[in-house]
Amino acid sequence: MSMAKAITLSDTTIGKKVVMAVTGLVLYGFVVAHMLGNLQVFMGPEQLNGYAKKLHDLGPVLYAARAVVLVSLVLHVVMVVQLLSRTAAARPIGYRLKKNQTTTYAALTMKFGGLALMLFIVYHLAHFTFPGVSMAAGYKHSATDVYANVVSGFKVPWVTAIYVVAQLFLGMHLYHGAFSLFQTLGLSHPRYVEKARFVAQTLGIAVAAANIAMPVAVVAGIVK
């Protein structure tokens, strides 16, 4: 038998998943920081706009952080495309009848949910970050008055609906992603695996709920 060339981690399906776990952790950190920043909308215009200004004043530090997030996102997507293109061929003929016994809805919707989140990120950036490409009627973009952007952006119910649906996918993605991360990085242990599942579920629900609260608060007239 001829000797196979020495393999590197990223050649293997496991290694690609390790990259997904690490980049997923970075993206999870971004999602939490983004949420904490945005939640200041409940503390009034001065607080939110002041926070936005402070963030922008960071200058190069902000752009470095954005670069890390962007690179993580690109790697996360490249890895999943590589994995899925292999695995799509792993079962060419499916079952007529297949019963899943333990998997979760969150696990089964990772692929579709991930694609939905990708589309949502594009929409979200078009909505708030790049002025002039807003899809919400009556939306006026201001570079300094973030609070006003939030209020006018979420006044349109279908825009809010898109955000709410996206956050449901995000919550499930965070749950299965965070839970899987321990397993993929080899950190899973029977002693705390069920606790890790509980924490992953709770955090996923908490992030989704907090993110949903903001657009819903605008529609409900609580934030105006």
Partner: peptide, 27 residues
């Protein structure tokens, strides 16, 4: 295919092999 932590394998295994070994393999 790759593993995406559905744990259907452990449920189907007639010898009840634990997915804990998968974490060990990754490690």
């Amino acid at each position: 295919g790759h593993c995406s932590n559905h744990y259907e394998c452990m449920a189907a295994c007639p010898k009840e092999i634990s997915v804990d070994f998968i974490a060990r393999l990754n490690r």
